[in-house]
Nucleic acid binder design. Structure first.
Length: 944
DNA sequence: GTTTTCACG
DNA sequence: GACGTACGTGAAAACT
């Protein structure tokens, strides 16, 4: 049933020769566009936001290749045959907003200007006309796509008929209908008849919503059967309602069922897609002052018409790109000078670097692409090589000479002038990578500035909604599929480096990236203002790019000898432990396999502890083994020891040695600015934000992180920053006072929640309070706290209740975050960063709870992340001003690590502490002081 | 490619 | 009233 249905994915593309009809729900679109788009007016003051959205949508649709028939359908008037069935139908709909009314005729005008059939009919709604056309087209074997997100049209989805949501740019197929209604399209009408619709004034049956309706229809098959057997319903209220309101349900059914037998005014043939005549559409566009669309059709007119209705935009970005008007290959100095002059003239250029690898500290620059405006891009090969000699495959092809390129040093000198020119804005996607590559002497020693980063723009605007890779954004915002890296370089053992790629292929790939970047920039940058995200971008993200470039470039010295010694020791201990484990188990097995271990522990040895998880595998996590060990299982104890050693060896001591850069002798992590939804950074290749510290054993790994001779590592970290923010944000007076007085915060909490005087505090009581304090930050639940504390759930819940009782501000905070997230789909940090929480609207209650906890945590974790980002951005000029020789090396969420000459440590520590403690001000006037503690030593272990 | 486990804040 | 849980990450190894 539903399971197999759900697997049906996006509809297949139209078959060869099959006609494809697009039916646009014009009336529905107007309202949605009006509400979704920010207000716009043309010079004479006429509001046109919906008209603009509509026009842009129509152009996009016509550009779509497989639409050969197209019509826009409108509602003719308010009254139609449904009002005769039920006079109140849609009666209570509010009047359209004042600034929408003048847009109705304009949208019909737009449709005609674009040479698209514009259809409406007295007595019927647009939906009925759509249903009728869909039936007619299907009878001829055509494919139909209904462009609308209106749920009332979902009943029409079937084989060959699907929908497309023009606001969200996503298809609506059978699976999406099931997601919305809980039943497949053919049963949607029955569900709607029961559930009714308060907006359209469809009565339905009282007390039954979509969920219950879907459940009932699933159970009884259809509406009539359900009504006939209503007496069998167990719930008394529901049974009564169904019996009493059977007629209302039947009337509702007549209201929601779409008519597909309307005498349509235009035959299908007349809906064939017609060419857009620039001369016909330009006067209309000019009247509305739609700049972007005007430019587009003017260029089309200049070229003597478009190519088969496809936009110049689409053509330039796809296969025709390389050919005529498309991307240019720059192979001599004069051409390069021409591009650079044009970029300087314009004051803005998008660029992308092509290299030999992903590690910016090791990669060699191979080429650079530039884009000035959509479709106008070039690629400058710099270090391409000829085809490499092929081994003995097919007799071995001989090596070829390197292709013609601008001499490297000459090209880099010119590019350096451009990329360092303060009057030219450089736009890149993940600019940190390109800036770091170019900053290395071998790749030109260029300090790129000023920089805009489309990846950061996307993160700031839509963090939490989707990924921020270039390919994903091209698809999402431009409807364009980028050439894949694999298609150019191959994969697996046959993969070649970009330096070996033939120039025409390299040009198409590289220039496309720059082209897409310049388009995304044009799309995203203006949204900063419209969506009030300028400050977040300009103060928290953009200034961090050069800071992180410097940190990644600095790296940190790691002593391989220390790690190798530890690895050898770990290896020995693992062998010993393995022997002991096999002895205890009575057989040899792979200790590293949770599956085998689970079978040994629970099947063979018969220890208690059940299955879990969808996969049916036994859980053998540390908590499970810890319980078994406490019950006296020596085997479990040994496995725990083995696991710890194995983890330390494989993830840290072995891997870190491999990460040492042979050129610098240091380890250079890479920070992701868009990895964490809350605004935190993340660290990878290698991850230096999770180096062990909690156990004595693991902590030793930090002795291998050292300062150069004559220097020290300085570590400064925020004390309890998240809890301090909670005290401030949730306005908890006693917690606030405790921080002000510098008291033991967990003991204080314990005293107040459990009513124990401070001088009678036991460590256990304090431990519990500490767990609650952390729980608060995570969006506490009785279950979670019980697990953490190993106490019954009821007891944990009692603690939480006591906490809420004592600190009501916490509960208010949690409730308001949940409500805000539900309403807006995101929550905000104190600095205005938006964190989108999609799970908050999930239909699965477990997912929703998850979203609620995330909504509680995100403003706290995110605000802390914002604070340290502000500190990092300010530290650069602050250290410079103080003439400090200190170098920032690492960030670990609430900690910064520096390398400092010995004689400058104390002064630097003081300066860093001041900047970090003052980082929230002046934007945020915290009622709780921020405190940072400093420590230093020869190694990271000593610095704490 | 996904799952499990475990390291950090 | 039932979902099945602490928030946020990344890496290695086993397993599909």
């Amino acid at each position: 049933m539903a399971e197999s249905d759900a697997q049906i994915d996006a509809p297949p593309p139209a078959k060869e020769g099959q006609s494809h009809l697009y039916l646009v729900d014009g009336s529905g679109y107007i309202f949605r566009a009006y509400h979704a788009l920010p207000p716009m007016t043309r010079p004479d003051g006429t509001p046109v936001n919906a008209v603009f959205g509509f026009s842009a949508m129509l152009v996009r649709l016509i550009d779509d290749l497989d639409a050969d028939h197209l019509a826009v359908i409108f509602d003719a008037a308010r009254e139609n045959f449904r009002n005769e069935i039920y006079p109140e139908y849609k009666a209570q709909r509010p009047e359209a907003p004042e600034d929408l009314i003048p847009q109705f005729p304009l949208i019909r005008e737009a449709t005609r200007a674009f040479n698209v059939p514009c259809i409406e009919m007295e007595g019927f709604e647009a939906d009925d006309l759509i249903a009728t056309y869909a039936r007619l087209a299907r009878e001829r074997g055509w494919r139909v796509t209904i462009v609308s997100s209106d749920k009332d049209l979902m009943q029409l989805v079937t084989d060959g008929v699907d929908m497309f949501d023009p606001m969200k740019n996503r298809p609506i197929g059978r699976a999406e209908v099931i997601e919305k209604f809980g039943v497949p399209p053919e049963k949607v009408v029955d569900v709607q008849s029961l559930a009714g619709d308060s907006v359209d004034n469809v009565p339905g049956v009282p007390g039954i919503g979509i969920k219950t309706a879907a459940q009932l229809i699933e159970e009884y098959g259809d509406l009539e059967t359900l009504l006939a057997r209503a007496g069998e319903i167990k719930q008394p209220k529901r049974r009564e309602n169904l019996i009493e309101n059977a007629d209302k349900a039947r009337i509702s059914k007549r209201l929601v069922t779409l008519r597909d037998d309307v005498e349509v005014p235009e035959p299908l043939e007349d809906l064939a897609v017609r060419h857009i005549d620039p001369a016909g559409v330009l006067p209309f566009l000019k009247e509305q002052a739609f700049k972007r669309l005007i430019a587009r059709f003017e260029s089309e007119a200049a070229q003597g018409g478009s190519e088969e209705g496809r936009s110049a935009e689409t053509v330039a970005i796809s296969e025709a790109a390389g050919a005529d008007a498309g991307y240019e290959l720059v192979q001599d100095l004069d051409d390069l000078k021409r591009w650079i002059a044009a970029a300087e003239d314009q004051g803005l250029v998008a660029f992308d670097t092509e290299t030999t690898g992903l590690d910016a500290m090791r990669a060699d620059l191979v080429g650079v692409s530039l884009a000035l405006s959509p479709g106008r891009a070039c690629y400058i090969p710099l270090r391409h090589v000829g085809r490499q000699p092929q081994g003995d495959l097919l007799g071995g092809a001989p090596a070829e000479e390197a292709p013609k390129q601008v001499p490297f040093d000459a090209a880099m000198a010119l590019l350096k002038d451009l990329l360092e020119n303060p009057a030219v804005l450089k736009v890149a996607h993940n600019a940190k990578y390109d800036a770091l590559v170019l900053s290395r002497q071998r790749n030109g020693g260029i300090a790129v500035a000023p920089i805009d980063d489309t990846m950061c723009l996307s993160y700031v605007l839509e963090g939490g909604l989707h990924g921020h890779g270039l390919d994903e954004l091209a698809q999402l915002h431009l409807g364009h599929t980028n050439i894949k890296f694999e298609e150019v370089c191959g994969k697996g053992k046959n993969q070649i480096t970009f330096a070996e790629v033939a120039l025409d292929k390299a040009r198409d790939y590289a220039a496309e990236d720059a082209d897409v970047t310049v388009r995304l920039h044009a799309l995203l940058k203006p949204r900063l203002v419209a969506e009030h995200m300028v400050t977040v971008y300009e103060t928290l993200e953009r200034p961090l790019i050069p800071v992180l470039v410097a940190m990644e470039r600095n790296g940190i010295k790691v002593d391989p000898a220390i790690l190798r010694d530890m690895s050898a020791d770990f290896a020995k201990r693992m062998v010993t432990l393995e022997g002991e484990i096999h002895g205890l188990a009575g057989e040899e097995f792979n200790v590293g396999s949770p599956k085998q271990l689970g079978e040994i522990l629970f099947d063979k040895m018969g220890l208690s502890g059940g299955k879990k998880g969808k996969t049916g595998a036994y859980g053998t996590g540390a908590d499970v083994l810890e319980t078994l060990a406490a019950e006296g299982s020596e085997l479990a104890r040994k496995v725990l020891d083995w696991r710890q050693v194995a983890k330390l060896k494989s993830t840290y001591t072995d891997a870190l040695v491999e990460s040492i850069n042979p050129d610098t002798g240091r380890v250079h992590t890479s920070y992701s600015m868009v990895g964490a939804a809350t605004g935190r950074l993340s660290s990878n290749d290698p991850n230096l934000q999770n180096i062990p510290v909690r156990t004595e054993e693991g902590r030793k790994i930090r002795t291998a992180f050292v300062a150069e001779p004559g220097n020290l590592l300085l570590s400064v970290d925020y004390s309890q920053i998240e809890l301090r923010l909670v005290a401030d944000i949730a306005g908890i007076e006693s917690l606030r006072q405790a921080f002000l007085d510098g008291k033991d915060i967990h003991a204080q909490t314990a005293s107040e929640v459990f009513g124990v005087p401070l001088d009678e505090m036991t460590p256990e009581t304090r431990r519990r309070a500490k767990a609650i304090n952390f729980g608060i930050i995570y969006g506490i639940s009785g279950f979670g706290l019980a697990r953490q504390l190993s106490v019954p759930q009821g007891e944990a819940q009692a603690y939480i209740n006591a906490y809420f009782e004592r600190y009501p501000g916490i509960r208010d905070y949690m409730d308001s975050m949940k409500a805000f997230a539900r309403e807006h789909g995101f929550v905000e940090t104190k600095f205005g960063r938006k964190v989108h929480i999609q799970a908050i609207r999930d239909k699965n209650p477990a997912m929703r709870s998850f979203g609620e906890r995330a909504a509680i945590n995100a403003p706290i974790q995110g605000t802390a992340a914002d604070v340290i980002k502000r500190a990092m951005a300010r530290l650069r000029p602050a250290l410079e001003k103080a003439d400090s020789p200190a170098r920032m090396l690492l960030q670990v969420h609430d900690e910064l690590v520096f390398e400092v000459p010995e004689d400058a440590v104390e002064k630097t520590a003081e300066l860093v502490r001041e900047v970090m403690e003052g980082a929230a001000a002046p934007t945020l006037n915290l009622s709780v002081p921020l405190v940072a503690d400093a420590g230093w030593g020869k190694s990271w272990a000593e610095a704490h």
